[in-house]
Amino acid sequence: MKLHTRLASVPYLLWVVVFTIIPLLLIIVFAFTGTDGGFTIENISAVGRYTDVIMKSIWLAAIATGVSLFLGYPLAYIISRHSARQQNVSLMLIMLPMWMSFLLRTFAWMTLLEKTGVINRLLGLAGLGPFELINTSGAVVLGMVYNYLPFMILPLHSVMVKIDASVIEAAQDLGASPLRVFFKVVLPLSMPGISSGITMVFVPAVSTFIISRMLGGGSNLMIGDLIDMQFLGNAYNPHLGSAISLVLMVIILLCMSIMNQFDDDVDVEGVLR
């Protein structure tokens, strides 16, 4: 009987092999072969030409992750100290924008930041500007923070809500100042949330090509743009594209393994629900 039910997962396991594992292996195969099909490391070494783009992607994503953490942490803490009912309402308010198309949310920022956009018009009324807001690195970071901030708040909140109020009271009772309570109790206990929040913001931020395309103009290329150009753009070269993808995968695995040092079990399931 037990064996019988275990067989129920066979279709899924086959599916994973065909549609997840083999495709990922294909990236590796393509990265190490030329157009003639022979083995080569030319593609990998060609990625070196894009070092500045790669470094800039990591840099922008890191800033966006830092800003998200800085903005999200206090909010997650505030929400976690509310009543269960208020918490549900607040969490829903935070998730609601995520239910709107990612593209349209980013498009909204285009409308706001444009030279003739809403912000510049408002500033114009005050006799300022117009400022060059869109097509800057700042706009790209802003887009990332805007889109991925909920990914930071949710895991932080799910960890903080488990911090028992009595633990904090105990620390206060033992004479800890609010600052000490924060650094000695709240912060260490929320480490798992911080590490999974960082992962969940950094991974999509470093690999995006939509945000950089829409808000960064032509001058803020990111790794995602490079990959897109190799697969669907004019530069069409899936071998080079695979090599760049491989580099991106390595960057992300590095980020994840660093974050795993702080938390051996990234609670994705908790975040999903």
Binding site: T20, P23, L26, I27, T199, F231, S245, L248, I252
Partner: peptide, 20 residues
């Protein structure tokens, strides 16, 4: 195995499936 599609960036999933 099941975490892979959730955790890996969409662009990697996209190009890998395209390659397939």
């Amino acid at each position: 195995l099941t975490y892979i599609p959730i955790m890996s960036p969409e662009i990697i999933m996209g190009v890998s499936l395209m390659l397939l």
